[in-house]
């Protein structure tokens, strides 16, 4: 029995299954068809089962059941009540109780925003403060320099560095100017011009992002083709 299981789940079996799955999905490239449809639904079932498995084995058992039952922390039973509140969404009469639960979840979710905002943006504001004129290195009065983040203005700045900084600040400001919604660009030509340049800069950046992503996406395919040729068909080594 265990031999059979081993054979059915051994390395070769995994590779064969993988190859069949891969080819089935790839049929979609030609057109939607019954093979794809079958594997799509099979995949969906596996995915939902996998999600369920993760929730049970990684959250509910170690974080809820074990503390509550094995370690005697009985108050975890309240979590069941909390979770149960969500299910009132199906009650016509007491629907609002689920709203209370959603309210708490939303509250917790938005509570992060201050930390998120500061953590992600303040270092970037500092990094945007770039000198625009070349200069030699110099010392600053004691007590100020130590706390200044990496972009120490004390280092010297070359002409090309200053130019780079100027480009950076120019793009940053024009792009920001594009995102003003309450400003009538038709009335203010200068601001409108800045916003238009901002949009061009955005398109340029998007092009660059697209270009740099191609590499990643091709890599995925390379991984798959390698799998099919080397692991499955064994025609390359």
């Amino acid at each position: 029995m265990s031999d059979l299981l081993h054979l059915l789940t051994g390395e070769r079996a995994i590779i064969w299954a993988g190859a069949i799955c891969t080819l089935a999905i790839y049929t979609f490239l030609y057109r939607e068809n019954v093979v794809y449809r079958v594997f799509e639904h099979f995949y969906l079932g596996l995915a939902v089962g996998y999600g369920l498995f993760l929730i049970v084995s990684e959250v509910l058992i170690p974080k809820w059941w074990v503390p509550m039952w094995d370690q005697g922390q009985w108050w975890w039973a309240f979590a069941l009540v909390g979770g149960g509140m969500f299910y009132f969404i199906y009650s016509q009469k007491h629907n609002w109780i689920s709203r209370l639960a959603f309210g708490i979840v939303m509250g917790l979710a938005v509570g992060f925003m201050f930390q998120d905002f500061a953590g992600n943006n303040f270092p970037k504001i500092v990094a945007s403060l770039k000198p625009l004129w070349p200069h030699h290195s110099y010392a600053v009065a004691a007590g100020t320099a130590a706390s200044i983040a990496p972009h120490t203005p004390q280092a010297s700045l070359s002409v090309s560095g200053a130019l780079n900084n100027a480009v950076f600040v120019f793009v940053l400001l024009t792009v920001l100017s594009y995102f003003f919604f309450s400003y009538d660009y038709n009335k203010h030509k200068a601001a409108g011009g800045s916003a238009r340049i901002g949009r061009w800069m955005l398109m340029f950046a998007f092009g660059a992002m697209f270009g740099s992503t191609v590499m990643a996406r091709m890599s995925l395919l390379i991984g798959r083709v390698w799998f099919l040729l080397a692991d499955w068909l064994r025609v390359v080594h």
């Binding site: 970037k124 990094a127 983040a149 972009h151 660059a208 992503t213 990643a216």
Partner: peptide, 17 residues
């Protein structure tokens, strides 16, 4: 990162993070 995340990586790289 995989290549797709690279563009976003330059931001922290630039900020010496």
């Amino acid at each position: 990162p995989t290549a797709v995340m690279v563009a976003q990586g330059y931001d922290p790289l630039d900020a010496n993070q």
